[in-house]
Design a protein around this nucleic acid. Structure first.
Length: 549
RNA sequence: GGCCCCAUCGUCUAGUCAGGUCCAGGACACAAGGUUUUCAUCCUUGGAACAGGGGUUCGAAUCCCCUUGGGGUCACCA
């Protein structure tokens, strides 16, 4: 049997890390068995479909290095003869199979409205009994039903679940799962708008696309009996099932896009804020007044920037923009639920394709640990050659921080990269911590903090007074390179500060950066260039009165 | 609440299926010390777990049962 797996996201947004891991495992399993990995877009919810969003995760998958053999065509991936791969374009396929079910008496129309069903559900809940559809539509007079259908009344089609059918699932991860007869009620398979429901579409498509292995999150386990029953009714082969443990937040809660919203709400509450520049008052009220509401993407990001907080990354694109490496992300994701054994935890996609097996997937949920991901990212960066790091940092800046390209010469840019290579945990770190490199000399400011005060104002002689001295030393350097700067400063320190480099280093660092952290000082000064350094020192010294009090 | 799933250090896990080699190994995190002109890195050392209770067995982290805890799911969303 050839192995055919599929990843079937709904196009409701970008690729979530949980989805990414599912795609990764599907991909690896197919590769391992020289099979095919297909991508199918589950866009049967007319309210949620959008083309732009579906392209988003194609890009994310490509970025992760997860290529698909069949599916939407994009950048050389996709195609295949089991299409179309958008469910919204497969309505006739569903209709054909649906008709078979109706003809066989295994599906029937039902006319209850959504409101009526919700009321019945609420009643059941209030009476503390489980809700199941009562099959009222089966009691209707056939002539009456026909009349309503002819009249064009809104109706859904329900699947008539066979009575007394225990479902036994042989799950590759969980083992045997049994669901007692009567647990599954007559669920809807075609909506009033004529679109199939997820359950129906997924079963028909998996069968007609020849999917042999269904690998998906455990949140789908409860759906599986429905799918199995439908397969039996339609005469389809049952695919192999493997339900993956879930990925959770560090606190054990479900990892979701809403986490960003929650982070913002918490910050606002903690600080007792009543307004923000990046959100207009009307939206602000509406948003905070309704916990089920979420701030639009862009707006949320602007607010986070205004508050100076980082939003938790939950989608693949968040991690890309935060400067994580795709090969590290897939490595870390693979570890959430799968293990190679033998204490091996660093590996790449090729290794996964060689060694991935379902029997090494764990059963219990895993919490997403950003610190470990960050540590892996650091390790990967430290393993890069200077050339590779430069290229990848450049590509990251081109996409996310063009000012680092625009405001520097290629030589300066290369030096910035190199001076950060061994300390960067992400490709974004240098751009965050070294903004002073691309700021105008006239825009540097010196906030009075414990650190800056210590470096500039405290002690005898103070940093400010030493800066006057050092400015002279630096201006006398002919070739303004890191090594000659270091030599000059060390010589100065030997003469004036008992060889203590820091006596020169910290005041200079604060003077040229406005803060207390930077790459090694000689590098920092060399990158800035003599003119900038002297100008910044001059302006810094002029700010001395701010530190007087 | 019904149904279903799960349970080894704080976290991810190896070991569980084929009980003994495990007074439980690795990684991240944490703590202490060291290197370093800042930050970060780096080096050394350390603490840290088989959820609880019953069985089965010469022997259980490994098999069975119960309890407790966690999670998922109960839509004309997927």
């Amino acid at each position: 049997m050839t192995c055919r797996t599929r990843f079937a996201p709904s196009p409701s947004g970008d690729l979530h890390v949980g989805g990414a891991r599912t795609a990764l495992f599907c991909w690896a399993l197919a590769r391992k068995h020289d099979g095919a990995f297909l991508l199918r877009i589950e866009d049967t919810d007319q309210k949620r479909s959008s083309d732009a969003a579906s392209l988003g995760f194609l890009r994310d998958l490509r970025w992760l290095g997860i290529g698909w053999d069949e599916g939407p065509e994009d950048d050389g991936f996709g195609g295949g003869d089991h299409g179309p791969y958008f469910q919204s374009q497969r309505l006739s396929v569903y209709q054909e199979h649906l008709q078979r079910l109706i003809d066989a008496g295994m599906a029937y129309p039902a006319f209850e409205t959504g409101e009526e069903l919700t009321a019945a559900r609420n009643l059941a809940r209030a009476e503390k009994r489980p809700y199941r559809y009562d099959r009222a539509a089966l009691q209707l007079d056939p002539a009456d039903v026909q009349q309503r259908l002819d009249r064009g009344d809104d109706h859904v089609i329900r699947f008539r679940v066979p009575d007394d059918s225990e479902v036994i699932i042989q799950d590759e991860v969980l083992g045997e799962v049994r669901i007692a007869p009567g647990e599954v009620d007559d669920f809807v398979i075609r909506k009033a708008d004529g679109f199939p429901t997820y359950h129906f579409a997924v079963v028909v498509d998996d069968a007609s696309m020849g999917v042999s292995h269904v690998v998906r999150g455990q949140e789908h386990l409860a759906n599986t009996p429905r799918h199995v029953l439908l397969q039996q009714a339609l005469g389809f082969d049952r695919p192999v099932y493997a339900h993956l443990p879930l990925i959770q937040n560090p606190d054990g809660s479900k990892m979701s896009k809403r986490d960003k919203d929650k982070a913002l709400r918490k910050e606002i509450k903690d600080r007792g804020l009543t307004s923000a520049k990046s959100v207009d008052p009307e939206s602000w009220e509406a948003w905070l007044g309704d916990k089920t509401r979420q701030l639009p993407h862009e707006c949320a990001e602007r607010l986070a920037e205004e508050l100076g907080i980082d939003l938790p990354e939950v989608s693949v694109d968040d991690f890309r923009r935060a400067g994580y490496l795709p090969e590290v992300l897939i490595n870390y994701l693979a570890l959430l639920g799968w293990s190679a054994g033998d204490d091996l935890e660093k590996f790449d996609g090729a290794f996964l394709c060689e060694n991935f097996t379902l029997d090494r997937i764990g059963k219990s949920n895993a919490r997403f640990d950003r610190q470990k991901l960050l540590a892996f990212n650091l390790d990967a960066i430290q393993d890069m050659t200077p050339e590779v790091f430069l290229e990848r940092f450049r590509a990251h800046c081109e996409a996310e921080h063009p000012e680092f390209i625009d405001q520097t010469t290629p030589e300066q840019f290369a030096l910035i990269a190199e001076s950060n290579r061994e300390r960067a945990k992400t490709l974004d770190d240098p751009a965050r911590s070294c903004r002073f490199f691309v700021m105008d000399d006239e825009d540097i400011t010196w906030p009075v903090t414990k650190g800056t005060r210590k470096a500039l104002a405290k002690g005898e002689p103070s940093g400010f007074s030493r800066l006057q001295d050092l400015s002279g030393v630096l201006s006398g350097i002919e070739s303004f390179t890191a090594s000659s700067i270091e030599a000059a400063l060390q010589a100065w320190a030997d003469e004036h500060a008992e060889g203590n480099f820091g006596a020169a280093g910290m005041p200079l660092r604060v003077a040229v950066t406005g803060g207390t952290t930077s790459p090694p000082l000689p590098d920092t000064l060399a990158i800035l260039g003599k003119a900038s350094v002297l100008r910044r020192i001059e302006r810094c010294v002029a700010s001395a009165p701010d530190f007087a009090s």
